[in-house]
């Protein structure tokens, strides 16, 4: 499903070149749920940007569902993100001027779906995350946990095979965090590939496979007891 081969990412700041990812090779099969852990600055977010097709690597190959995406142009990447990937961010990243329903519809609008179909799909995923009674609330009128559930609904709306979640519980109280984790695990049971980025060992314990990254390199990959 996802194959990274010798992916490196360099950032040039002034005369210094930072190696954010150093020849990362990684296979993820469909339906897996894994956590990427590592200290701050180790390259987790950079890896997530690569996996999420938000950025292209400086070197190496990336096959997503058999398609080489590491050399694509911005608009093609946007299309792949829209079709294949659902993002869940630490700080929710909802549009504050839109209602919950409108936020969830947004990826479907960019996909070019008609109003009726959009509405149907959005209502369904909002139901799944238990927000059928908050459709017309703006983010400011929702709790953090509810906002993150809207964000999950938005990630799910287009029915992408992969959900990428960067510290999805980082800004939540423990109860809301547990709820969010339950939803993600439930999605995984239904067949979604879920990639979590976290530095919380408690979260990492809940998944089968853990990848530890340090200084841009994968130092551990496997199951933690």
């Amino acid at each position: 499903m996802i194959k990274l081969k010798n992916i490196s990412k360099y950032y040039q700041t002034g005369s210094i070149t930072i190696t954010a990812l150093d020849r990362v090779t990684l296979d993820i099969s469909a339906g897996e749920m894994l956590a990427i852990i590592g200290p701050s600055g180790s390259g987790k977010s950079t890896l997530m940007n690569m996996l999420g097709c938000l950025d292209v690597p400086s070197e190496g190959q990336y096959h997503l569902e058999g398609k080489e995406v590491s050399k694509l142009q911005e608009d093609d990447l946007a299309e792949i993100r829209n079709q294949k990937i659902g993002f869940v961010f630490q700080n929710f990243n909802l549009l504050n001027s839109l209602t919950a329903l409108e936020n969830v519809e947004l990826p479907l609008i960019y996909r070019g779906l008609g109003a009726g179909e959009r509405r149907k799909m959005s209502l369904q995923v909002l139901g799944m995350v238990g927000l059928s009674d908050r459709l017309h609330h703006k983010p400011a009128e929702l709790s953090g946990g509810q906002q993150q559930r809207v964000a999950i609904a938005r990630a799910l709306a287009g029915n992408p095979p992969v959900i990428l979640a960067d510290e999805p519980t980082g800004n939540l109280d423990s109860r809301s965090g547990e709820e969010v984790m339950e939803i993600l695990k439930e999605l995984n049971r239904k067949g979604k590939t879920i990639i979590l980025i976290t530095h919380d060992p408690e979260i990492a314990k809940q998944v089968r496979r853990v990848i530890r990254i340090q200084d841009g390199q994968i130092v551990f990959s496997g199951e933690v007891a």
């Binding site: 608009d75 946007a78 829209n82 990243n93």
Partner: peptide, 16 residues
């Protein structure tokens, strides 16, 4: 800027 980033992340193209 952040709104633009969000729109792009979920599939907004340049022309959108």
């Amino acid at each position: 800027t952040r709104e633009i980033g969000i729109r792009k992340a979920i599939g907004g193209k340049r022309r959108d």
